[in-house]
């Protein structure tokens, strides 16, 4: 199994290289440059020209790419033009914020989705199932950013229950307050993210439960004289949760994509917001670094899913 995992990681290397080249080229293809308008709107074009030159931005793309790769191996992702800060430090700070947001979102998503999916599947066609299905359809139909804007408006402004911006209150002191304040800031975006994230899991789990209910092995269990509630516990739930468990790896992808919306709407200082800002400021070093990180995390997520699946399902063995 370790061999396979190692091999999968090795296969990721060319994938990551291709990804990074693509990203690099796309970033370069965007019109504009990092200096115009960002230093001083009245800056002398000759000075910008000079800055471009000393930063190597006139070099051919492969040379710029090569320089970047060489630096990368020195643990140096470059300097952000916008923030005048090493990219590594910049991202490290943002990553923790995103990580916490993602973690809370994920916990909330599964905490809501699992009972809903199982319940809907078990009572297929009855009232609770209909209610849950209507909920998933409605949530599915509304674009994510609309949910976010709606949520922030209702719970943030109208009801005023949650903060609408930032990751921590400025006056938080002591570790207890700090953690409390962070969690308080995360809660609303996480709940909204979870509302959106539950849809797929609920629908998937529901149909898994319904399939399992009508499966032959459940009929065998009934023929053994196993009471209904035990059949659900020992056979149906276990077997239908299995693909969901494997889903966990893939959901990293969804969370990262979601974070771009969430963090922008909530002005939450995470990687998503950083990404959007870097794009608008043509902060190449940050863009490329972020996309690279996103790409690697996605690949790791897929790998994680495969590993989880092989652990929980005896039919699949990675040798």
């Amino acid at each position: 199994m370790w061999k396979t995992i190692l091999r999968r990681i090795l296969i990721m290397i060319p994938e990551v290289i291709i990804l990074s080249i693509l990203v690099f080229l796309l970033a370069k293809a965007m019109p504009g440059d990092p200096f115009t308008g960002s230093i001083n709107p009245k800056a002398d074009p000759a000075q910008i020209h000079h800055l471009m030159k000393i930063n190597g931005l006139y070099d051919p793309w492969y040379q710029q790419y090569w320089n970047w790769v060489v630096h990368l191996f020195h643990g140096n992702l470059g300097q952000s033009y916008q923030y005048q800060e090493p990219v590594t430090r910049l991202i490290a700070g943002r990553a923790t914020n995103t990580l916490w947001l993602a973690l809370v979102t994920m916990v909330l998503t599964y905490a809501m989705a699992l009972p809903m999916g199982v319940f809907a599947g078990r009572h297929e066609g009855k009232l609770p199932d209909t209610v849950i299905r209507v909920y998933t359809y409605v949530t599915y139909c509304i674009p994510f950013f609309v949910i976010l804007v709606l949520g922030i408006w209702v719970f943030g402004y109208v009801l005023g229950w949650f903060p609408t911006t930032g990751s921590i209150a400025t006056d938080a002191n002591g570790w207890l307050q700090t953690i409390g304040s962070r969690f308080y800031h995360i809660l609303l975006p996480a709940i909204l993210g979870a509302l959106f994230g539950t849809v797929n899991i609920v629908q998937y789990l529901r149909s898994e439960v319904i399939d399992a209910k009508h499966s032959d092995y459940v009929r065998t269990a009934r023929a053994k004289g196993v009471p209904s509630k035990d059949i659900y516990r020992h056979h149906i739930f276990r077997n239908s949760l299995l693909p969901i468990a494997a889903f966990a790896g893939y959901s990293i992808t969804g969370l990262l994509n979601g974070s771009i919306f969430t963090e922008t709407v909530f002005s939450y200082p995470g990687m998503g917001l950083l990404f959007i800002n870097s794009i608008s400021y043509r902060d190449y070093t940050v863009i490329t670094a972020l996309v690279l990180i996103y790409g690697i995390l996605n690949l790791l997520g897929t790998l994680l899913s495969d590993i989880i699946l092989s652990v929980v399902d005896p039919r699949i063995r990675i040798e």
């Binding site: 269990a221 009934r222 004289g225 196993v226 039919r315």
Partner: peptide, 23 residues
């Protein structure tokens, strides 16, 4: 019925693969 099923009445099914829980 559960007191009879499996105890006094046993059943054998057609497709032995799907009739067993794969996990």
């Amino acid at each position: 019925f559960n007191r009879f099923r499996g105890a006094k009445i046993g059943m054998i099914f057609q497709d032995p693969l799907s009739a067993l829980n794969p996990l």
